[in-house]
Simulated scan of single mutants.
Amino acid sequence: MDPRRARALPVPAETQADARMFMLGGDTIRALKVIVDATGYDLRQARDIVYALIYDVEVPILQAP
Rank of each mutant, 00 (worst) to 15 (best):
L43D: 07
T39H: 03
L32V: 12
L32S: 09
A38N: 08
A17R: 10
I54K: 09
P65W: 10
D37P: 01
P10V: 01
K33F: 05
D18L: 14
P12T: 05
Y41R: 08
A64S: 12
R20A: 12
I29L: 11
T15V: 15
E14H: 09
V36M: 15
P60T: 09
A17H: 03
A38R: 00
Y55K: 14
V59C: 09
Q16D: 11
Q63A: 13
T28D: 05
K33R: 13
Q45Y: 03
R5H: 06
L24F: 02
A17W: 01
E14I: 00
Y55P: 00
V59G: 09
D48M: 06
R5N: 10
A13S: 11
V11F: 00
A31L: 10
T28R: 15
A6K: 04
R4S: 13
I49V: 15
R44T: 12
L62N: 02
P3R: 13
A38Q: 07
R7A: 13
D27G: 04
A17P: 04
D56N: 15
P60N: 10
G40H: 07
Q16Y: 12
D2V: 08
E14S: 14
L53A: 12
D18M: 11
P12L: 05
M1P: 04
P65I: 14
V34F: 03
P10W: 11
V50Y: 02
R20D: 06
V57E: 15
Y41F: 15
E58C: 00
A31V: 07
P3M: 12
A19M: 11
I54M: 13
E14K: 14
I61F: 03
R4K: 13
D18H: 07
V50H: 08
